[in-house]
Amino acid sequence: MKRAIFPGTFDPFTVGHFSVVKRALTFMDEIVIGIGINENKKTYFPIEKRVEMISNLYKDEPRIKVVPYNSLTIDFANSVDAKFIVRGIRTVKDFEYEETIADINRQLAGIETILLFTEPELTCVSSTIVRELLHYNKDISCFIPKGLEI
């Protein structure tokens, strides 16, 4: 079985994240969406709410699991027996960062990272921007997947 993790803060889960998961399901048997707990990030939604929102979004997809974690990503991958990490990249800056992390993860744990380029129409979408729009009570419906209940 080919199992991958898709790690992130997902605060909130966007159409870009949804696209990465959908595309990764075409070549993975199972994806564990790992919601990382990052003490250095100030989040909009508590971890329990993010787990609930994403779990509800995928409630009818048995190949998706949603799990919070508070460890190194490679340790989380090992704990769920995943051999791959899936990441989405929007920009060259994202690519440079992800390449470095992928090299370290492969060296430390033998885990391969699969980078999926964001679809061009979604490159402007980020959780940071969506959080700011939420803060100012703006409509975010075009930036989050249909069915994600915020």
Rank of each mutant, 00 (worst) to 15 (best):
E99Q: 11
E99D: 07
E99S: 11
T100P: 01
T100Q: 15
T100L: 14
T100Y: 13
I101V: 14
I101E: 07
I101S: 02
A102H: 06
A102V: 02
A102L: 09
A102Q: 06
D103H: 14
D103Y: 09
I104T: 14
I104E: 03
I104W: 05
I104N: 05
I104K: 03
N105W: 12
N105G: 06
N105F: 08
N105Q: 15
N105H: 14
N105A: 05
R106E: 12
R106W: 15
R106D: 09
R106K: 15
R106M: 15
Q107F: 12
Q107T: 13
Q107L: 12
L108R: 05
L108F: 06
A109H: 08
A109K: 12
A109M: 04
G110V: 10
G110D: 04
G110I: 14
I111A: 06
I111G: 09
I111H: 08
E112S: 11
T113W: 08
T113Q: 07
T113E: 10
T113D: 06
T113P: 00
I114R: 01
I114W: 04
I114H: 09
I114M: 07
L115V: 10
L115M: 15
L116M: 11
L116N: 02
L116Y: 08
L116C: 05
F117N: 14
F117Q: 14
F117Y: 11
F117E: 13
F117V: 13
F117H: 10
T118K: 00
T118D: 09
E119Q: 10
E119G: 01
E119N: 09
E119R: 09
E119W: 00
E119H: 05
E119M: 02
E119P: 08
P120Y: 02
P120R: 09
P120I: 10
E121D: 12
E121I: 07
E121S: 13
E121R: 05
E121C: 04
E121M: 07
L122K: 13
L122N: 10
L122Y: 10
L122F: 12
L122A: 03
T123N: 13
T123K: 15
T123S: 11
T123D: 07
T123A: 11
T123F: 08
C124R: 15
C124I: 15
C124W: 12
C124D: 09
C124Q: 12
C124P: 03
C124G: 13
V125C: 07
V125M: 03
V125N: 03
V125A: 06
V125R: 03
S126R: 04
S126H: 08
S126P: 08
S126I: 07
S126D: 03
S127H: 00
S127F: 00
S127M: 00
T128S: 14
T128P: 04
T128C: 04
T128V: 13
I129H: 05
I129Q: 10
V130G: 07
V130L: 05
V130W: 04
V130M: 08
R131E: 01
R131M: 02
R131G: 02
E132V: 01
E132Y: 04
E132F: 01
L133C: 09
L133D: 05
L134K: 01
L134R: 00
L134N: 00
